[in-house]
Design a protein around this nucleic acid. Structure first.
Length: 556
DNA sequence: GTAGGGTTAG
């Protein structure tokens, strides 16, 4: 009772009992008990019962027992805080932590580890900084358990430099700290830094374990890093890690990202008992490499093994069905999600919005969006993209304003969706404004997709010189897709002169593509420049691409 | 105290 009457301070509410996600069956209770040999039976009884209640979805009893315990040890505080944190009742966990700070019992390194994890899971940087301050006040800044929790928390919030500062502030680094820092680098995309730290770790004499290889593998995201991934895979085989499903899933995922589906499949088929995550990694791999039918085939195989999809796999499959523009399986998945109470999960709903809008049912997509109990930036992005897809740019902007009103932070995809909407809707002024605000107000640097949409927007509006200047300002290493966008604008406006300039630039950048040549060839033909068409035809002949030479080829 | 699959971006 007393626990519920604790003061509400700041935004932290009083703890309330909630069900635990992963309860342990009662029958395992006795087997899991430690052997009792010593004195403080009452305390031990409280401690054990509290633990028993906590793991059996009975936080009310756990709370009551906690309140009744006269001398609350650190262990007891940690147990109850952990119980709330594990059910994602973060406000309750924080509230208890504050009460603990005010009590006679001071938090130890395990309390901080638990509360720091809660900060990162809640993506609460403000709380993380406050707790970090408390760590220093408590003189636990050099403790390896607290430090690894800090490194992990900062990394999960994308603040890998802050994580490194914590790491560097320690005199001695154990294996877990190295692993945590390597994982931080890997998950933030700094594969080189991860490898450098790995090399240092090896020099010190640490033997890499499963956590180390997972951390390293997670940083390998493109085909140029395939060789490094293969090297790490070799190490896994030599170390006998290949039967570990965690590591296998990461290997499948790494090979997929590196564009090597054959190797991904080999890793998967080498497992005698792949679990749901490994199956999902494979199916996602097929989806990402455009093998949508294989994705569905392996989903059926998974079903025949008696395994049932969870919300992640449903989201993957919905993305597959939206790519295939096949409504029926998408609706079936929606039904399955409803029956298993997964339809309200943000990830599933966002994938449903995308699926319905791509299959031509914007109204159903909006219905899913309206009924979502919780939304995040991805769900907003999905609905902005949906409006854009249907040419409803002003509606897309309305949703964008709602994002800002709700205090959500727009990301790269938000601006891709908005610029795409402007491009489809021909909103030149608004598009220019968004492109500027993205950098000035939201500190997001334009990526290839942003430029493709922006160049198309400006170019299609007839401002070809401006569009050219935008692409030209990007220098030599500009993605050919951006030049391609400009070329299609030249085609739309039949500006052959500009198209030839663009072709020349593509040639200089060694980024010529057959499709671009075909486009220029068609434009030349349209303008009666048959000699130039023939020249292009000969070039294409030379590389065996005569068949792709489009309309102009037939007319020649 | 550290690890797996992830929905949006034509």
């Amino acid at each position: 009772m007393a626990l519920v009457t604790h003061q509400v301070q700041g935004s932290y509410a009083s703890p309330r009992p909630l069900s635990l996600k992963k309860g342990i069956e009662s029958k395992n209770f006795l087997a899991a008990f430690p052997i009792v040999k010593r004195t403080d039976i009452i305390l031990l009884k409280h401690r054990s019962c509290l633990w028993f209640y906590a793991i059996n979805n009975d936080l009310t009893s756990a709370c009551n027992l906690f309140d009744e315990t006269p001398n609350r040890t650190v262990y007891l505080w940690n147990s109850i805080i952990r119980a709330y944190a594990q059910t994602h009742s973060f406000l309750d966990a924080f509230s208890l932590f504050k009460q603990m700070l005010a009590s006679e019992t001071k938090p130890d390194n395990f309390t901080f580890a638990c509360i720091l994890r809660a900060c990162s899971e809640k993506l609460d940087l403000e709380a993380l900084k406050l707790v970090h301050g408390q760590v220093i006040v408590s003189d636990l800044g050099s403790d390896s358990i607290t430090a690894s929790a800090l490194v992990s928390a900062y990394s999960k919030l994308g603040l890998v430099d802050d994580a490194r500062m914590v790491f560097d502030g320690l005199n001695r680094h154990d294996l877990v700290l190295h692993n945590t820092m390597i994982t931080g680098y890997g998950s933030c995309g700094y594969w080189e830094k991860a490898l450098n730290l790995f090399i240092i770790m090896r020099r010190i004499g640490y033997q890499p374990d499963g956590y180390t290889v997972v951390g390293l593998l997670s940083g390998l995201t493109c085909s140029s890093l395939l060789e490094i991934g293969q090297g790490i895979h070799g190490y896994c085989l030599r170390s006998g890690f290949d039967s570990n499903t965690h590591i296998s899933s990461v290997l499948v995922s790494m090979y997929t990202r590196c564009g090597c589906m054959n190797s991904a499949y080999k890793v998967f088929s080498g497992l005698s008992h792949p679990d749901l995550v490994t199956w999902s990694a494979l199916i996602s791999g097929f989806s990402q490499s455009g093998e949508y039918h294989n994705a569905l085939i392996y989903f059926r195989k998974l079903n025949s093994c008696g395994k049932k999809p969870d919300s992640v796999l449903i989201s993957i499959l919905l993305a597959v069905t939206s790519q295939l523009v096949t409504l029926a399986p998408g609706v079936e998945l929606h039904g399955y999600a409803i029956r298993h109470n997964l339809h309200s999960e943000v990830m599933v709903s966002s994938a449903l919005i995308d699926m319905y809008s791509k299959c031509g049912f914007l109204d159903l997509a909006l219905k899913v969006f309206d009924e979502m109990p919780k939304r995040n930036i991805v769900s907003y992005n999905s609905v902005i993209a949906s409006f854009g897809l249907y040419g409803l740019a002003s509606e897309a902007f309305e949703v964008f304003h709602e994002v800002l009103e709700r205090g959500l932070k727009p990301d790269e995809s938000t601006f891709t969706a908005l610029l795409s909407a402007c491009s489809h809707g021909g909103l030149l002024k608004e598009g220019r404004d968004v492109f500027r605000r993205m950098r000035d107000d939201f500190s997001i640097e334009a990526n290839t997709e942003h430029y493709v949409h922006f160049v198309k927007l400006v170019g299609m509006a007839g401002e070809l010189d401006e569009a050219y200047e935008v692409v030209n300002s990007l220098g030599e290493h500009v993605d050919s897709g951006i030049w391609g966008a400009l070329l299609s604008c030249c085609d739309a406006h039949n500006d052959l002169k500009m198209a030839e300039i663009v072709s020349q630039r593509l040639l200089e950048c060694k980024q010529e593509r057959i499709s671009y040549k075909v486009m220029v060839s068609n434009m030349l033909a349209g303008n009666g420049r048959w000699d130039d068409v023939k020249k292009l035809r000969d070039e294409l002949d030379g590389v065996g691409n005569r068949k792709v030479c489009g309309v102009s080829w037939i007319e020649v």
